[in-house]
Every structure is written in structure tokens, then in C-alpha cells.
Amino acid sequence: MKLITYLLITASFILSIAGCENDEACLSNQNAVQASLLSAWWEEDNDTTLTEVSVTGLNMEDSIYRNQTISGLFLPLNYHTDTTSFVISVKTLKDTIHFIYEKELDFISGECGYIFSFDLDTVIHSKAFIDSVSVIYPTVQYGETLENIKLYIY
């Protein structure tokens, strides 16, 4: 009996250590629309880069990007409204882009808590330098790093 008990105790000890759970890493900034920049002058998709780009939320003072060279954008959505708007300026040109979406409260896990998931419905924009917008993946949700829209630039 002793031997069997010792064996079982040892096995349980090993398993108890194996069963210790690691702390879960929680991700931040999981509410942004991911956009790629493409040239409107080509029939096929060709990545493009813009210089001196600034992006600011409509009616906001702080910039998300300030005079930067970029080939893609991360545009964070507002939790309190169903539309989020941004002013994008390239050198002296300015465009406004509006994202209209539905949002849903979600729960990630016991360690990471609550989050909002978004489903893009419509994208409206002015046409100073943005030719068109294509929504390729309308869902913005926790843990995904997929490109949501393509911005075609003149």
C-alpha cells in the first residue's frame, strides 16, 4: 500500500505543478480599423506610401498621426457613438472619412474582462486625395489583426 500511495502522491505532485496556469496576456488597442493604402492609378492593387500625413479624430485636438510617412493606418473607433470620423491630411490636402458601424459588448476572459466588437456597415469619405474605399473585412474584434479596408489614393 505504501509504495502505491507514494507513487500516486508523486504523480499528483507532478500533475499539480503541470496544472499551474500561466497568467494570460491581455491585448490592448483592439478597437482600430486597419487600413492599407493603395494607388488608384493602377488596375491591380499596388501598395503606396504617403508622406507628411496627419490624422485627427473629428472635433479632437490630439493627433493619431502627425506629419508621418505611412503605408497603412490604424484608426480607433469610438465606444460611445455609432459613427467615428477622422480628418486625414496629406501635405495641404484634407479628407474626412466616416465609419458607420454596429457595436456589441463582448467578454474576452476572466483575466482580460470586457471589450467591444464592431461590424462596419458603411464608409463615407470626401475626395480630395481619397479616390475610393473598399471594405474587405467588416469585423473589428479582439485578437484579430486582419486588414479591414483598402484606401485608394489619387
Binding site: 490592448s28 479624430g57 479632437m60 490630439d62 469610438n78 465606444y79 474582462g113 470586457y114
Partner: peptide
């Protein structure tokens, strides 16, 4: 239940629910 929760937003206002 949750008496309160916060969803942080690095640019716009945080959500309190």
C-alpha cells in the same frame, strides 16, 4: 454580475458600464 467595468480606449473616451 459586474457592479462596474471599464473598457479602455487610448484615443477616445473610455467606456464605463
Amino acid at each position: 454580475g459586474s457592479k462596474s467595468f471599464i473598457i479602455e480606449n487610448n484615443y477616445w473616451d473610455d467606456y464605463h458600464g
